[in-house]
Design a protein around this nucleic acid. Sequence first.
DNA 1: AGGCCAATACTG
DNA 2: CAGTAT
DNA 3: GCCT
Length: 599
Amino acid sequence: MSTKDQSITSKTTNKADRHQEKLFLADVKAIIIEAGLGKTRSAILKKQLIVYGGQYHRSIQSDTTHIIASKNIKLARLCTILKIDTIPSNLIVVDADWLSQSLTKGQLIDVGQFNLVKRVQPKTTSVQLDKALTKDDNAATLEHGKKEQIKRHSDASPCTDNSDHNEVPPASQKRPLEEKKISSPVWLKIKRGRFSKTNTKKRAIDNSNIIHQPLDSDSDYVESDDDNNANTSEIEMVLSQLPAKYTAKPSSSWACARPSSLPVKNRNKHITDILEILQKKYENLGDQWRVKGYTKAISSIKNYPREITTREEAEAIPNIGKRLADKIWEIISCGHLRKLDYMDNDVQTALNVFTKIWGAGPATAHNWIAQGLYTLDDIRAKAKLNYHQSIGLKYYDDFNERIPRAEVVEIEAVIREEATAIEPGLEVITCGSYRREKPTCGDVDILISHPNGRSHQGAYHKLLRRLQAKDFLTEILVNQDVDIDHQKLLGVCKLPEEGRKYRRLDIIVVPYREWACSLLYFTGSGHFNRSMRLLARKKRMHLSEHAISVGVLRKVTACSVLKYGNQKLTRGTPVPTKCEADIFALLGLDYLEPKDRDC
DNA sequence: AGGCCAATACTG
DNA sequence: CAGTAT
DNA sequence: GCCT
């Protein structure tokens, strides 16, 4: 087989694996019967089905593979709903639990025991569907002991005769690996405790499956082999004081709980291009929340594995609601969005240009346009600029150009050299997208501290003076000197050689006790940080660039009794952290490498 | 209907 | 204070 | 914008 089709071919690199696991429902093209499942559940299943690469069909199509239904539904009812007399022999009617459990597990599980229509002979019109489940023990299997598991495994399900040919469409017989994984009992690997920081995705997934198990009796968890270090004992001590509900492992619906996925080829560029124009418009309007909505939607579409062809398909994608689905449908069917015609393109263009000036946002840009300014030359000639904006304009082209990693390395080297000359033990680390291993960066974020907890003091000002003295630091936009322990520079630097570009440089000095939280924060991504802070809040903790605290109480907002508002009542107790892994552990998350935080 | 991260500093 | 930025 |  050709090697180019990686999405199907089983590759063995970590990333390819992850990618593949993500789309483990790729061979499932299913109808979901709402009756008996309820609106909510069927909606969830539908969304999840699509998220993991499956296709949702509203009615039976030539390539439909599964009918997913409640185990209690009667065959007659099913046929009525589907407007057919018999179930076509190429279709598998399967209990919705099959999908649910596959989703929990992150991989396709054996369809056997969930098969609702045994295909002894094709037209068993009278078969009582639920009969298939008389065995009782189906849904509970995960909770039961291993012997039960093994037994079930060997004695196979009632319909073993045809189970292999009806479990997944012949289209792709090539997934022996799921079978493999299934047959090797998961619980053998369970042993390790909930804080084992597994590095391989595979183990992470296994763990996530296991987490439902009552973790009472497993007190014998082994102290995981060092890996990311962590003063595990201290962190666990803190955790042990917390109510169980706050120590549970967050689901993968949290962006901070799963590694950022490989970039997938965007098969819906015709859609995202237009949505991005709209998003830009709202950005220029300063409508941050709508922009956020678009961001999530566009990201979902870009990660969607197929070309979107129907409105329903679009609406089933997470973060796409009715209104975006309508827009998408218009794009699909007309190849065009009328709304765009109503936009004043000259204004939009000018706004886009102006807001790329560092220090100018939507409000400023609108002001300028109101004054009849439309081009950068207009701005240069007539606009009134504050200091930030004048620098932003002066280096407009340079600032809007990405910085190659190699150059970031050079810039970092300059700073490290000067810092080390001031105080040998200073730690100098470049965060931001550089640390997340992006090929290019928008700016350079450098974090500085000293392990002894005090020698960072005073270094900042000396460092600035030295960098200025060698004409490396050319402009200072913001010089934030909070206290003896905290300084921040937003500035501009340029390497000495002729022809080098001016680059945005941030330098942050923090006390070492804040090292972990600072590192986490300045590494980002922004979305990752938001997700993690929100999670912290849900767990009654509080995460900032300074510290993570437990036992934070917030005021309950008027209308949502169960949700926490953002007004703090008590500040909580900061937990000492020595590395990023400590923070992940406190939040019940598997550790993620910086490159996996790129969401 | 209201949340969607948090906290702070600078400019004018 | 509003606006911008990190 | 979307989601709860």
